[in-house]
Design a protein around this nucleic acid. Structure first.
Length: 507
RNA sequence: GCUCCCUUCGUCUAUCGGUUAGGACGCGAGAUUUUCAUUCUUGAAAGAGGGGUUCGAUUCCCCUAGGGAGCGCCA
């Protein structure tokens, strides 16, 4: 007998960006569904109307699409289903599984404060749970509370956490309908998951206690409880919960920094899950191997160095055309002035998009944003970037580093040399450049091979070490002491620009 | 404070009670090299502490310590 295909869902609230932790949760859900021929649904938890706005929702859909996590059907708006949620609340009331509560927020807060002061659990026991409806004040709009069991315990059977048991006395009667008649999150989630036919709820552990309470709603309605998998949280490098202080929180930040979706997926899936010693896994392998039963319980720290390594690997694996397409795709998202203005914690890892922005300020200050940079490359010729790509991609961890490496192609002249490059251009170097320029100028063909032969011939004739010739040349051509191989630089820069930059430095 | 969860190299992790505790990132050394990188070789690096159970515990149980999450008419 085969198990029915699972239905999972990702249910973010519209915060304005797809949180990196949420992205991993979505990835786990997606992989689980993909591996079992199931469905991956998307629901936007937008019942809080103050927070709800279309752009915030769009940002999340955008992030998921970029990561390649496609969902089945249309995204469901939780808010749009409020009538159905109210209907269930009323049903619960009729069944005697819920009751009207006339306690005011002030009363509730006071009771909580008192409990805190006395060191008791901060739960609120409504006095209206057992009172006659006839006693109800006419002038107060009540909330509807779930009549949760007071005795015994509620157990959550979880694929990650195991069996977790909560004493019912520690779970208060949660409000399912606000006094304004609107449903609350916990009710909405249960009703939606039930109505959408969700079989497996895979979400962050921060929802574990909610699950206990939600279980009571399922029980109140006589509905089947779905399977659960509460995945551990992702922390920053310092072990604290990921926050703004850590820098990048949303997946769009990772896109901006030049990470590849495939690399980010490979990195994220290894946080809390593994398959033996495997590190680099194809999407097909992940789909085949992933299982919620293999997820670990402990939280993990985000490590940019490892992400960088994976991204570098996938960049090297990518074809030159793919990388070109990725670059063109990401450029419109970059605003260099904004990146330069970004305040980043000195302890946070450096961002390659910010580094690129600063490099641009040094080499081509007239370029303001990604579109302007794209236009420059367009003028210089994307084919040149393509030609340089094999050399570029083997020394880049991110697409931004790829761009930084290609920047010499569009730098403003005269080139501003950085400190290390300046030091390379001493009197000897000037002599070398003046002597070398005419010999390159007469090269039959302007290719890396021909130019290398010419430079090697020069160094042999003069007895100068190749490095003594190549380094000043590199500095003159790129303004930097490190770059792709100089002969490649010469080739893609072209005869005219190369000779001009050599001349400017030799002078 | 109350409830629940976690704890193997710096980090991510492997280990179905018996291993020289493995891999990856990072770090160190070396080789290749026009710089940087790539690639290859190689080194250092871990079972939080204390009790049990057992012939034998990283693995099972308890306690302590440390960390995390939750405790809204937010989601």
């Amino acid at each position: 007998m085969t198990k029915a295909a699972p239905v999972v869902r990702f249910a973010p609230s519209p915060t304005g960006y797809l949180h990196i932790g949420g992205a991993r949760t979505a990835l786990f859900n997606w992989l689980y569904a993909q591996g079992r021929g199931g469905k991956f649904l998307l629901r936007i938890e937008d019942t809080d109307r103050e927070r709800n706005n279309p752009e915030a929702v769009a940002a999340i859909l955008d992030g998921l699409n970029w990561l390649g996590l496609t969902w089945d059907g249309d995204a469901v708006s939780q808010f749009a289903r409020a009538d159905r949620h109210r209907e269930v609340a009323l049903d619960l009331l009729r069944r005697g599984a819920a009751y009207h509560c006339y306690s005011s927020p002030d009363e509730i807060n006071a009771a909580r404060e008192a409990a805190k002061a006395e060191g008791r659990p901060q739960i609120f026991l409504s006095p209206w749970r057992d009172r006659e409806p006839a006693d109800a004040p006419k002038d107060i709009k009540p909330t509807v509370r779930l009549k949760a069991p007071r005795d015994g315990e509620t157990t959550v059977s979880d694929h990650v956490q195991g069996r977790v048991t909560f004493p019912n006395k520690d779970l208060d009667d949660l409000i399912i309908l606000r006094s304004d008649g609107n449903p609350t999150y916990n009710l909405a989630v249960v009703v939606d998951d039930h109505d959408m036919g969700v079989t497996h709820v895979v979400r962050g552990v921060d929802h574990l206690t909610n699950t206990a309470r939600q279980t009571q709603i399922y029980q109140g309605m006589g509905w089947d409880v779905p399977e659960f998998a509460h995945v551990p949280l992702i922390h920053g490098a310092d072990g604290a919960k990921l926050s703004k202080r850590h820098g990048a929180q949303g997946v769009e930040d990772y896109r901006s920094m030049g990470y590849l979706p495939v690399a980010l997926r490979n990195y994220l899936v290894r946080l809390g899950w593994s398959h033996g010693d495997d590190e680099i896994m194809s999407t097909e392998q992940l789909i085949e191997w992933f299982d919620i039963d293999d997820i670990n319980k402990s939280a993990s720290r985000f490590d940019f160095k490892k992400l960088d390594d994976l991204n570098g690997h996938y960049i090297r694996q990518s074809t030159d055309d793919e990388l070109l397409a990725r670059i063109k795709d990401m450029l419109p998202h970059l605003d260099f002035a904004a990146l330069r203005a970004l305040e980043i914690d000195p302890k946070a890892p450096p961002r390659s998009d910010v580094a690129l922005a600063h490099e641009i300020a040094a080499l081509a200050p007239s370029i303001a944003n990604g579109s302007a940079l794209a236009a420059r490359f367009e003028t210089a010729g994307w084919d040149k970037v393509r030609t340089a790509m094999p050399a570029l991609k083997e020394r880049a961890k991110t697409l931004c580093e790829l761009l930084t490496g290609a920047l010499f192609l569009v730098a403003d002249e005269p080139l501003k040399l950085d400190d290390k490059a300046s030091k390379l251009i001493d009197a000897d170097a000037r002599t070398t450049l003046s002597a070398l320029a005419p010999r390159l100028a007469v090269a039959d063909v302007w290719t890396a091979e021909a130019l290398e032969a010419a430079v090697r011939a020069y160094s042999e004739e003069t007895g100068a070490k190749l490095g003594k010739v190549a380094q000043p040349l590199r500095a003159a051509l790129t303004g930097r002491a490190v770059s792709p191989p100089v002969f490649t630089v010469l080739e893609v820069l072209g005869r005219e620009k190369s000779l001009e930059r050599m001349k400017l430095c030799a002078a």
